[in-house]
Amino acid sequence: MDRIVLHDYFRSSASYRVRIALNLKGLAYERREVNLADGAQKGAAFRSLNPQGFVPCLEIDGLKLTQSLSIAVYLDQTRPDPPLMPRDQADGAHVRALALTVACDIHPLNNLRVLKYLQGPLGIAEDAKDGWYRHWVSEGLAALEAMAAPRAGAFLFGDSPTLADVCLVPQLYNARRFSVPISAYPTLRRADETASAHPAFAAAHPDRVAQEDLVK
């Protein structure tokens, strides 16, 4: 089988999701960092892999896959054990809704490129930008807490990690980085604590990845 190559950035939430998914599937892969801080994602070399200029991009099975949730679904379809999605259709719809709440409704509004645009072309002050971040993250997490609580277990859904946890953990990592209070979300905090203790999640953590990069 051809080697698996992940083009990512250690602190990118979307990349963090894919690292977790690969680890949960027990797949060995080579990381190639695309330094977002230096603008490497805008260069012709990377755009030949992903015309959007976003990370992650996963080279696997002769394919170049983009968009973190699409990559996770592909991994689940081609390497079904252990599953990232419940087999029951209703349960699957619930888990997708949790994952998409993070990936489509929370994360895009606090993405680095959005925050840079607020401060750059729009001239928004630092405190106003931080207020924007906290507002949208807090609103999204409150909704996620209400959605997840009735059916959560040790993880966001039940007692095994799913795609919902793959999305939750990077989002809470970023929330803490930007000092967003999360004490009001006991379900999310419990799932995050459980997941973060799992080896697949721990190995994907940005601090762990950054440390490994320094050793190389």
Rank of each mutant, 00 (worst) to 15 (best):
R3F: 13
Y9I: 05
S15F: 13
R19V: 13
I20S: 01
I20M: 09
L22F: 01
Y29C: 04
D38P: 03
A40T: 04
A44F: 10
A45F: 08
R47M: 12
N50P: 02
N50T: 08
G53P: 05
G53W: 06
F54W: 04
G62V: 08
K64N: 14
Q67L: 04
S68F: 08
D81W: 08
A93L: 14
H94K: 03
T101V: 00
C104M: 12
P108C: 06
V114N: 01
L122P: 09
L122D: 12
G123H: 12
G123D: 11
I124P: 01
I124R: 04
E126W: 09
D130Q: 15
G131P: 07
Y133R: 04
S138W: 11
E145G: 11
A149F: 12
G153E: 10
P161S: 09
P161I: 05
P161Q: 05
P161K: 04
L163H: 05
A164N: 00
C167M: 02
N174V: 13
I182A: 02
A184Q: 09
Y185A: 07
P186A: 01
L188M: 05
A195Q: 03
A197R: 15
P199A: 10
F201C: 03
A202M: 10
A202G: 06
R208C: 13
V209Q: 12
D213L: 14
L214Y: 06
L214G: 13
